[in-house]
Design a protein around this nucleic acid. Structure first.
Lengths: 244, 244
DNA sequence: CATTGTTGCGTACGGAGTACGCCATACGAT
DNA sequence: ATCGTATGGCGTACTCCGTACGCAACAATG
């Protein structure tokens, strides 16, 4: 336990929290309070609005006090991330209804999660967070696919594939969602401004395949799109199971 | 052309570049030089190392001079992004070898692109970039799936699904790649530090499904993983074509 | 030559993350 | 009850960021 490497402190925070100290003044905060406040701030105003100063203000402490609990902002984001993931009840019950039902539920629940906490995908670009909730997630996954006749290695690949697909689709969705909100205009306004330019380009002859697309080409909702791709993946898996 | 909306300037930069001025001193730079230098910087040192000051230094001009060419850093990133995407030769030739070959090539080429320019995914969180190369990309896509017996709407869904899958997998891959590099240790060191903690957790009884996984569960390469998921999607599509 | 629209860019402002060190605190030993 | 000491709170300050503003050098037009 006397590891002297930088990751040890990080992992300890995730798995065991702050050590209880005997001496010294009482802490005004707990790690949980900081993490929760951080999540609230990020949920409400986006990841770019989450600064250590604002967080300290919200908690009514000095800015630098936070650093008695968390070694850096990066670690705080890791803690926030692990606090937000983890097995939901819906997934736990779905784990007993066959692998297809379980995988679909997992994908849908994960999508919901990332849409609710849209900062989670942007926050996490430096390192994978191996916290208790992430591991519990993976544990539930292997429970849910227990009856799938694949090797463990293939199951792990499947976990990655589904997670990749979900995060990829959510990223797309958030991209378009942010487009209008950040520029301070409604979705309609946004398109009204872009359409003239795009129409001119489309009819320029440079993009013949796009010029002859049907009217409703871009009309799918994000959810329809998501279900379409999810169906493809699961159908592909089923087909592969029939003839290996 | 006398639009007075904020997006007009943005779209104009993407599609037409800077207007040529008659009067005044000669420009020391071109938009292309700035974009290229930005890409070089981001490729070499990552997106967080790309600041307007460093970029100006690299180009040997004053920092604020850049703002005569580009209205903000965000717009610069948009330009960099569109400069980096666009149809490759491999995809163009694959467009005539049937939809399955074309889709697989598209996915693989896009993956390579995002791995080469790993900043591209992180840079683009505010709005979708509808530049000439992005549109050319989509145009090629519809050319490549011309013989696919689906509606245009379904084809568009397919484009989104594949792009989502690719960006999702690359994000995962970069996440683990950055983990070791950013913390300044090799991949091996990184794991040496984490494994003791993880092993303790695994054998704690809290995660029974994970405790009994086979040795090679986590041994797949990222490329194998990628091909696995890609195969599932394409197989699913084929199955769906046989019985709609 | 005078006018005028442009470019280059120095200065400066507000906000970010966080290193450092001082002071108040409260337990453990005496 | 007292003292020593480890600990928490946090004010100050440093560096780095994006960029608003305004002035001076410049070049084509009248």
């Amino acid at each position: 336990m006397t590891d002297r490497n930088p990751l040890a402190r990080s992992l300890q925070l995730l798995w065991e929290g702050l050590p209880e100290r005997a001496k010294g003044p009482k802490s005004r905060l707990t790690l949980g309070q900081i993490v929760t406040a951080g999540i609230e701030l990020a949920d409400a105003d986006g990841i770019e609005a989450l600064s250590m100063r604002k967080l300290a203000q919200k908690l009514d402490v000095g800015t630098m006090s936070l650093y008695r609990y968390v070694p850096s902002k990066g670690e705080l984001l890791d803690l926030m991330l692990d606090a937000v993931v983890g097995p939901s009840q819906a997934r736990r019950t779905a784990a007993e209804r066959g692998w297809r039902e379980f995988l679909a539920t997992t994908a849908r629940e994960t999508r919901k999660l990332y849409i609710t906490h849209s900062w989670a995908l942007q926050a996490n670009w430096s390192r994978p967070v191996l916290g208790p909730n992430s591991v519990a997630d993976l544990n539930l996954f292997f429970t849910g696919v227990k009856n799938l006749s694949s090797s463990d290695q293939e199951k792990m690949n499947l976990a990655t594939v589904i997670d990749s697909y979900v995060t990829g689709t959510v990223r797309q969705e958030l991209l378009w969602l942010n487009a209008s909100s950040e520029s301070g205009m409604s979705d309609d306004e946004f398109w009204t401004y872009q359409l003239p330019t795009l129409n001119r380009v489309m009819s320029s002859g440079r993009f013949p395949a796009m010029a002859e697309l049907s009217e409703n080409t871009f009309d799918s909702t994000w959810e329809e799109n998501f279900e379409f791709g999810l169906g493809l993946i699961l159908d592909g898996l089923e087909a592969r199971l029939r003839r290996p």
